[in-house]
Simulated assay, not measured.
Amino acid sequence: MKKHITIFFVVVISLNTFAQVGMTTNNPNKNAILDLNNSDGTTTKGLLLPLVSLSSTTNSAPLSAPVEGMHVYNTRTYGSGTTQVIPGEYYNNGTGWIRIQSESWKLQGNTDTNTANNFAGTKDAIPLVFRTNNVERLRITSTGKLLIGTTAVPTGGTNAKVVIDNGAVKGAVQLKDGTEGNNFILTSNADGVATWKAPATEIDFVSSYGSGINLPVSPLNKWYFTGSSVTLAPGKWLISANMLLSKSTGYTNATESWWVNSSFSDSDTVLSISADIINGSLISGSAVPNSLYGILSGSTLINNTSGSNKTYYYIARVAQASSTATGELQNFGGGWPDDNISIQAAD
C-alpha cells in the first residue's frame, strides 16, 4: 500500500504593524514602505526599473493611460523635435513623460564640459529668459536676438541683433574705453571695432598749453618742446596751430628775418616728427624785417593708429635766419594770448 505525503511550503513576507515591506530583510526601515536593503549592510544589488520603449514624451504608451508618478527606463531614441525620447530614466507627470536629467548645470560651476553637447539654453523655439528679483532683465529670442529691457523687438528692429529699451531714461548705452569725450560720436574702423570720436564738424581747442619757450637763433634746426601738447583718440585728426613770433628785444632790424618750423613729436624728451603725421609734417611761419610780430600758422593731419588715446607734443625750431638775426623769439608755443592749437576730426 502506497502512502502519499504532502509537504506544504509557506513563504512569509515580513510585515510589521505599520505595513512596511522588506524584500531582503525581516527588519525593514519603519519610514519606508519598501526597503530593499540588507540589514547587515552587505547590499550588492540595485533597483532595476522596467525597461520600456517609449515613442513620444506626449504618448503614455506602453502604459494604457497616463499614471502620475510612474518611473521607467526608456531604451531607445525615437521621434524628433520637442517630443523626442532618448535612452534614460523618465517619470510620468500625469500628462506625459519627463526625462530625469543627470547632467544638469551646477550652481557652483561645471567641469569636463563639451561644447558639442553641453550648453545653457533651449532646444526648442522658446526664448531664453534671465531674471533678477523675479523681474525679466534680458532675453535671447529663438532667432538669436538679444533683448534688454523689452520682451519684443520694437518697430524698426527687424535686422537688429541687440535691442536695448531704456524707456524714457537717458544713457541706455555706456561704453568706456578711454576714447570717450563730451559730445563724441561712436565710429568704427574697417574691422568694425568701435571707438569714440569728436564729430568732424566740431572744433576743439587745446587746453594743455605750456608757458612757451624762447627759441634761440643758434643752433639752427634744433627742436625744442614748447610745453604744449594734444591728446587724440584713435583716428585721423586735423591739427591747426596759430602762434605769435616776437623778439624779446622788440622790433626786428632792417635786414633781420626768421623762419620757424613747428610739428608734433611722440615724446617730450626725444624730439622728432611723429610718424603718425600723414600730410604736411611742418607748420611754419616767419618774422620779417622791421616787424614787432610775425605769425606762424598752418595745419597738419595726424592719424592715431595706436588703438587708444595718444598724446602728441608740440615742438619748434628755428630753421633759417638772416646773418643779422640775433637773440631769441620769446614765449613761443603757448605763452601769448594769441596762441592756439585747434583739433578737428578728419574722418
Rank of each mutant, 00 (worst) to 15 (best):
A160Y: 08
S262Y: 01
L146W: 07
T158P: 05
I295A: 06
V10Y: 00
G192I: 11
I5E: 06
S257A: 10
I5R: 05
K236Y: 12
N279L: 15
I33R: 14
G81R: 08
P28T: 00
T201M: 00
S208E: 11
T17A: 14
S240R: 11
L245E: 09
A190Y: 11
S142P: 06
P234A: 05
G41L: 04
T326S: 15
T324W: 08
I33F: 13
W258P: 03
W259Y: 11
T155H: 00
D347R: 05
T305S: 15
G41E: 07
I278G: 02
S240C: 10
V52H: 07
A233T: 12
N221M: 08
V52D: 05
D177G: 06
P337M: 05
S211N: 10
P199M: 04
N27L: 09
E136G: 10
T141P: 09
N38E: 02
N92F: 08
N93Y: 04
D204V: 01
N340K: 13
Y78Q: 15
G41W: 01
S257Y: 09
L138R: 03
A233K: 01
S297E: 02
Q330T: 14
S322K: 04
I98D: 03
I126P: 00
V230M: 03
K106W: 03
W105F: 10
R99K: 15
T179A: 06
S56N: 06
N117A: 11
S284A: 15
L48Y: 04
L15P: 02
G192N: 12
G210Q: 04
T57I: 14
A321I: 03
V318G: 03
V12P: 08
V135K: 08
V11A: 12
S291G: 12
G144P: 07
G285A: 01
V193W: 06
S267K: 02
S228Y: 08
I86N: 08
D165Y: 01
A198N: 08
N340C: 09
T249D: 14
H4E: 10
D266E: 09
Q108C: 12
S323V: 07
S265I: 11
N261P: 02
I126W: 00
S342K: 05
G307R: 06
I341W: 02
V21Y: 00
D35Q: 12
A194C: 00
F18S: 14
P289I: 01
E180F: 09
A233L: 02
S281R: 14
A160E: 09
R317E: 15
L175W: 09
G333V: 13
S55V: 15
T111F: 09
D266R: 10
G171W: 06
Q344E: 12
D338L: 07
Q174I: 12
V217F: 04
S14A: 15
K170G: 05
P154V: 09
I315M: 06
L54M: 13
Y314L: 01
S262F: 02
T324H: 07
K106L: 12
D347M: 10
I315E: 05
N340G: 07
D124R: 00
N133A: 15
N92M: 10
